[in-house]
Write a protein that binds this DNA or RNA. Sequence first.
DNA 1: TGGTATAGTTTACAACTGTAAACACAGCTT
DNA 2: AAGCTGTGTTTACAGTTGTAAACTATACCA
Lengths: 134, 134
Amino acid sequence: MRSIPKISDAEWEIMKLIWRVNPITSEEIIISLSGKMNWSAQTIKTFINRLLKKGAIGFEKTGRSYIYYPLVSEKDCIRAENKSFLKKVYNGAVGMLFSNFIEEESLSEKEIEKLQDLLAKKKTKILPVKKIER
Amino acid sequence: MRSIPKISDAEWEIMKLIWRVNPITSEEIIISLSGKMNWSAQTIKTFINRLLKKGAIGFEKTGRSYIYYPLVSEKDCIRAENKSFLKKVYNGAVGMLFSNFIEEESLSEKEIEKLQDLLAKKKTKILPVKKIER
DNA sequence: TGGTATAGTTTACAACTGTAAACACAGCTT
DNA sequence: AAGCTGTGTTTACAGTTGTAAACTATACCA
């Protein structure tokens, strides 16, 4: 249960890729991100190295090059990021966060329905139900 | 329509206060935040100064001290922060953001109902309604 | 087996951040 | 009027970040 290191914006881009596809070589990372992000190969190498130093990813030697894989889970990182964002911008008020995003962002009907579903489910869960032990 | 400057985490704390109560003196800011944030008065002064330099706040002289007020709106800053967070962590997928927060965060029944209401309203707005001109 | 391309490592460097000490200046007090 | 006191201003300093060049070592090709 390694504590999650601080991951910078640029590093997040690398991590998202590694979480999606791993293990992965630096070459693949560079190919995949240099265009999208407009980063030079060297720049990407730096980010990979920093993530290594931070303990966010690990690697295994494979002949000439390494293959990298995540050491921290996406779930945990997202959770941490959510938390600090919520605190920083909304003082922890989830309700405000939601209403803001609902207002600002465009959602398809389908998405809205899915959210309504999620909320309904959530509601039943917090309903003061008489607990049945077994 | 001043473009919003980049506001750091610590600076956000100052801004949130200034948005809530303004105009405000540095003394008030220091009193209000030094305890909560565990910052020395000097540290807070630095943040205030940086916000001035960034053009996020302005001031007016009042004898010995200044009174500060925001130059960028809370709404705009929150919007920008939302946007970059959504992009960085969720690749812009609002749906994912919502389901994550709904799962992770605890919401009161009342809050859930409010959200359901908001979603319902949002839905009617995107419903393909035959426009009635007048 | 020697040379070379290439993957990884080190170094660079300015801007931004958190954290704060040192300094300067203008009113208020005596 | 002179000094003190409390504001604002400058300077400091290490760590992080974005961006990348320079360097090094080694696996593979000829």
